[in-house]
Amino acid sequence: MFTQQIINGLTLGCIYALIALGYTLIFGIIRLINFAQGEMSMVGAYIAIGITILLSKYGLLSENLLLTLPLIFVITITGCSLLGILVELVAIRPIRNSPALDALITTLGISIILQNSFMLLFGSNNKVFPSIFFQDSLFIRNAQISYLQIFIIGLSIVSMIILHIFINKSKLGRSMKAVSEDKVLANLMGININSIIRNTFIIASTMAAISGIMLCMYYGVARYDMGFIPGIKAFTAAILGGIGNIPGAVLGGVLLGIIEGLCAGYISADYKDVFSFILLIIILIFKPQGLLGEKVSQE
């Protein structure tokens, strides 16, 4: 039971962590909570399902899984990134210097637009993701661990490691850190702030795309409002870890997933969210800047 709940929690936690990374990256760079991050993940799920439908139409879907799976990922990531660029250009850039709450409402607006336009375009029923990938399961001490869970956890870890290396070793990663710390100084180095912000949105959208595919693989279905709950959870996770802090987002996501898993297993599935939120509040009272957040002096 324990192992089972940990694995279930870890799977969900990894998905939260991926979305939370988007929140934290965007917050780090422009001090904005982008509430449309969960919807970005929903869009990813829809694109993935669209491709599987298209592939199966031509009978290519189950031909070669090693080929189709990466194809789904590449196209979904590209699609979400394009949407991310569009959102940044049309809605975020104009309001970058607005009061913080105006900016927040804008992102909520985007999230409502995305949800409802997908509902209008594709209907409000569940879209099925064909269960062709990773159907089998392992059994370890009474715990059933599906290959899909292993895949999700594994891929999440790989994505996070790649992101970590990218942020710390690449020129773009360095520039992102620089812009996030001090825009004026970054500008004085000759960095084009707008282009760095655009790239940050691309990376955040990529993370959301990956999480979207995972969500629809895990639950087998997608719906226009599927991004909402994970979005809120991931936001909570990012705050829990200390918003703007990349390891914090991962820690917060994983922690939240595991708490949920354990609460669902041992206390009550109905009250699992109650317990995670109570824990969130308690942690914030003792660590007002989140687990790994630092107190930034306000000069």
Binding site: A91, I95, S98, D102, A103, T106, I112
Partner: peptide
């Protein structure tokens, strides 16, 4: 959603 977003962009 559209009106929220547009009002905010307009206001900025």
């Amino acid at each position: 959603g559209l009106s929220l977003t547009f009002i905010m962009i307009y206001r900025s």
